[in-house]
Structures are given as structure tokens and as C-alpha cells.
């Protein structure tokens, strides 16, 4: 099963978002977009060119952007707010909490440049706490797709879902290895069935998890690889079903260990099926400037780190 996950080209997840928006612009007249002075970074040029009346430039004023989006949603529109993940979450947490989440507004918070893979801009912009902040908000759906294809499909899927959504994606060019097309919010994808270890990954880390699973399989370890693109609501059934077979679980994500997907899964397993776990995540640290792959290696998020975490559990 794993062999089909390979790639011929690299593309950024943010390009998947931009191309998804272009298609939404053509298909769904209710969709509107707002951006806080980052049109090029969020790949919105085509959407704006084709739908100038449905795009609102808010300038460098993210709090106002969240409030305007809430007002547009109140009056029946489906607004997509577009800026970096750092400015989409921590900077505007109270606006999201009161005007969007508590008020149950159909706003899609679309957040690019998340995590270490933002690269050279450094820790000021490399948010690693956003999943935690957003998953804590009642009623908020949190999605972190793995590649271009999945991000494009997720962008389109959230437009037809009613309720607030946080969609997280990134800056770097990254292997495109997931099939095009369908995206089911909240539904895990079992990419490889196995019996020795459950390996769960989200976002950019999924490609490293695929590499790790291939190597482990070659050395005789049977890996169940699960793509969790929707961190909340979590597909609890898929995870429980898998760990009941394997009894050990590794979670890989480009986020703080505190508050991330691994913590959500640990909570689930502690309540329902206590299981030995390892987390491949950033351990209570800020990032720094560097190239994406260098940073992932330095902060313990490489393919090798995933392999070692799996070996630790099955030794």
C-alpha cells in the first residue's frame, strides 16, 4: 500500500489553498475572501482577478479582519480570512473567541506559513501553538492537510461545511503524494495497514512519516500509517481501532508537544485504551531562522526521529 505514496513534483500547500479558492470563486457565489496585506503569500491573485467584488483588502489589521468576517457571516456570506498562521490565531484570539466561535459564525480562518517550515523568517513568525489555541475553542473545526492536493480539497470542502473552521497550511515547496479529489472533514485516512505500531501524522510531517513507514516495513516492522488531516473533531474510532491491534502509538506533527495532535490522542487513549506513546513534536521551544528541512532536523522532527520513536515503543 505504501508504494503508491510517491511523488513526481513538489508544490506548496499554500498553492493548494490558492487554487482551491480559485475554483470556489467560480463555483460558489457566496464565498468571499479577506486578506491582511498578504495576497501574494496566500496565492489569492487569481481569486481576486476573477472576483474583485468578493475580495476585501483589510490592510495590516487582523483583529478588524476577524470582526468583518464575523459580520459578513452574520449576513449570510461564507468569508475566508487569509493571513499567516501567527496573525490568524494568537494575535486575534479574543476576536475569534467572541465574534466567531462563541457567536457560531461560519468563518473559515485560513492560515499559511505555519510551523518551523516557514524557515528563514524565524521564530517571530513560526507559530507552533496555533493548533492548541484553536482546538480549545468550543465548536471550532481544526484542519491541517498534508500536501498540495489535500489542501486544495480541504479548501473546497470547508466552504460547504457550516461552522467556524481553522485551516492550517504552509510555505515550503513539498512533495505532492496524496491523491486528488475527495476530502471528508473528520475522517482519518489509513494509508497503510499494519500490526506492530500505529503511526499518526498531520501536515508536512506526513511525508516524513511515509518515508519512515517505508523504511520500517523494509526492516520487518509492520506499520499502520494514519493521515489525520482533521485534528478536531478527531476520528477517535480510527485511532482506537488501530491501537487495539498495535498497542503502541507514535504521533508526528509540526507543532508544540503541548496542545498538539499528540496531546489530543494521548487524552483519548488515556480515557479509553491506555497505550504507550511517543510524540515527535517540538518540545517547549521556539524555532529560529534556517532552511525548512534543517529546522525540522534540529528540532527533532526528521524521518529518523520518527523511526527511532517507533523503535523505542516496539523494542
Amino acid at each position: 500500500m505504501l508504494n503508491k505514496y510517491t511523488y513526481t513534483e513538489k508544490k506548496a500547500t499554500r498553492d493548494g489553498f490558492g487554487d482551491g479558492m480559485t475554483e470556489l470563486g467560480r463555483e460558489n457565489p457566496n464565498v468571499v475572501a479577506l486578506c491582511a496585506d498578504l495576497i501574494g503569500s496566500l496565492k489569492l491573485d487569481k481569486f481576486i482577478e476573477e472576483n474583485p467584488d468578493r475580495f476585501f483588502q483589510v490592510g495590516i489589521a487582523e483583529a478588524n479582519m476577524m470582526g468583518i468576517a464575523a459580520g459578513l457571516a452574520t449576513a449570510g456570506k461564507t468569508p475566508f480570512t487569509c493571513t499567516f498562521a501567527n496573525f490568524s490565531t494568537g494575535r486575534v484570539y479574543d476576536q475569534i473567541r467572541q465574534s466567531i466561535a462563541y457567536s457560531d459564525k461560519n468563518v473559515k480562518i485560513c492560515a499559511s506559513h505555519a510551523g518551523l517550515t516557514l524557515g528563514e523568517d524565524g521564530a517571530t513568525h513560526q507559530i507552533l501553538e496555533d493548533i492548541g489555541m484553536m482546538k480549545m475553542l468550543p465548536g471550532m473545526t481544526v484542519i491541517n492537510p498534508a500536501d498540495y492536493n489535500q489542501t486544495k480539497a480541504a479548501t473546497k470542502a470547508i466552504a460547504s461545511y457550516k461552522g467556524p473552521v481553522y485551516l492550517r497550511f504552509g510555505r515550503p515547496s513539498w512533495p505532492v503524494f496524496m491523491p486528488e479529489g475527495e476530502f471528508e472533514i473528520g475522517k482519518a485516512i489509513v494509508m497503510n495497514e499494519g500490526t506492530d505500531v500505529t503511526l499518526v501524522a498531520t501536515g508536512h510531517m506526513l511525508w516524513y512519516a511515509v518515508q519512515a513507514a517505508k523504511e520500517l516495513e523494509e526492516s520487518g516492522v509492520s506499520v499502520e500509517l494514519i493521515n489525520i488531516h482533521t485534528i478536531k473533531p478527531l476520528d477517535e474510532e480510527a485511532i482506537l481501532k488501530s491501537v487495539k491491534k498495535t498497542n503502541v502509538c507514535v504521533v508526528a506533527e509540526e507543532h508544540q508537544m503541548n496542545g498538539g495532535l499528540g496531546e489530543s490522542i494521548a487524552g483519548l487513549l488515556a480515557r479509553q485504551h491506555p497505550t504507550a506513546m511517543q510524540m515527535v513534536a517540538v518540545n517547549d521551544s521556539f524555532g529560529e531562522s534556517g532552511k525548512p528541512e534543517e529546522l525540522l532536523k534540529k528540532y527533532g522532527l526528521s524521518t529518523e526521529d520518527i523511526i527511532n520513536a517507533c523503535k523505542k515503543l516496539i523494542a
Binding site: V32, F56, A63, N64, M65, M66, G67, I68, A69, A70, G71, L72, A73, T74, A75, G76, K77, P79, Q95, S99
Partner: peptide, 9 residues
């Protein structure tokens, strides 16, 4: 901000 959003809609 919310009122502006409603006015745009």
C-alpha cells in the same frame, strides 16, 4: 468591525 462586515454583505 462586525457591523462593517454586515454592511459589506
Amino acid at each position: 468591525s462586525a457591523a462593517i462586515g454586515a454592511a459589506l454583505a
